[in-house]
Computed example of a mutant assay.
Amino acid sequence: MTTPTVDTLRASGATIHYEVRGSGPILLLIAGGTGGAASFADVVEDLATDHTVVTYDPRGIGRSPLDHADAEQHVAEHAEDAFRLLELLAPGEEARVFGSSSGAIAALHLATAHPERIARVVAHEPPVVEVLPDAADHRALVARVRETFRTEGLQPAMAVFAAGVSGDRADEQRPQPELPPRAAERVARSMADLPYFVGQIVPRFMSYVPDLPRLERLSERLVVAAGEDSHGELPYRAASVLAERTGAPLQLFPGGHIGLTTHPEEFGARLRGVLTTPAR
Results as ranks from 00 to 15, higher is better:
Ala79Tyr: 09
Glu233Pro: 00
Leu66Asp: 03
Phe40Glu: 03
Arg182Ala: 15
Asp50Pro: 06
Arg270Gln: 13
Glu80Met: 14
Gln176Phe: 09
Ala192Trp: 03
Pro203Gly: 08
Pro58Ile: 07
Gly164Asp: 07
Glu130Asn: 11
Ile258Asp: 10
Phe149Pro: 05
Asp42Glu: 09
Pro254Gly: 05
Thr15Tyr: 11
Met1Cys: 10
Arg120Ser: 01
Ser166Thr: 05
Pro127Thr: 06
Leu212Asn: 04
Gly36Lys: 01
Asp193Asn: 07
Ala76Asn: 00
Arg245Glu: 13
Ala111Gln: 00
Thr112Asp: 10
Leu215Cys: 04
Ala104Cys: 08
Thr151Gln: 12
Ser102Arg: 11
Pro235Trp: 00
Val202Tyr: 06
Arg120His: 07
Glu125Met: 03
Met206His: 06
Leu88Thr: 14
Arg214Asp: 12
Glu19Thr: 10
Glu220Arg: 14
Leu29Ala: 13
Ala79Asp: 00
Arg204Leu: 11
Phe83Trp: 15
Ala225Ile: 04
Arg21Glu: 02
His74Lys: 13
Ala31Met: 11
Ala143Cys: 04
Phe267Ala: 07
Phe205Arg: 06
Leu28Met: 09
Pro181His: 07
Val43Pro: 01
Ser100Thr: 15
Phe267Arg: 10
Ala95Cys: 08
Val224Ala: 02
Arg186His: 14
Glu216Asn: 10
Arg10Glu: 15
Gly255Lys: 03
Gly199Gln: 09
Pro156Ala: 06
Thr8Val: 12
Thr277Phe: 01
Gln251Met: 09
Phe149Gly: 11
Ala136Lys: 09
Ala248Pro: 04
Leu29Arg: 07
Gly247Trp: 01
Arg221Gln: 14
Gly256Ile: 00
Met158Phe: 13
Glu266Met: 09
Arg280Asn: 10
Phe161Val: 02
Leu86Asp: 05
Asp229Tyr: 03
Glu265Phe: 01
Leu194Ile: 10
Thr49Met: 08
Ile105Gly: 05
Val54Trp: 08
Arg221Gly: 01
Ala225Phe: 02
Met1Ala: 14
Ala243His: 02
Pro156Asn: 05
Val198Pro: 04
Ala192Phe: 08
Tyr18Arg: 06
Ala37Cys: 10
Arg144Val: 09
Pro4Cys: 08
Gly259Arg: 02
Ile61Arg: 02
Asp171Thr: 05
Leu108Asn: 07
Asp46Ser: 13
Arg182Lys: 11
Val160Lys: 00
Val274Leu: 11
Gln251Asn: 01
Pro177Phe: 04
Tyr56Asp: 02
Arg96Ile: 09
Pro264Glu: 01
Leu85Arg: 04
His257Val: 11
Glu130Trp: 04
Asp134His: 13
Leu88Ala: 13
Leu275Cys: 08
Arg63Lys: 07
Thr261Phe: 12
Val209Arg: 14
His51Asn: 14
Gln73Lys: 05
Asp229Gln: 13
Ile26Glu: 11
His114Trp: 13
Val128Phe: 00
Arg186Glu: 10
Asp171Asn: 12
His17Cys: 04
Leu275Pro: 09
Ala163Leu: 10
Leu212Trp: 05
Ser12Phe: 09
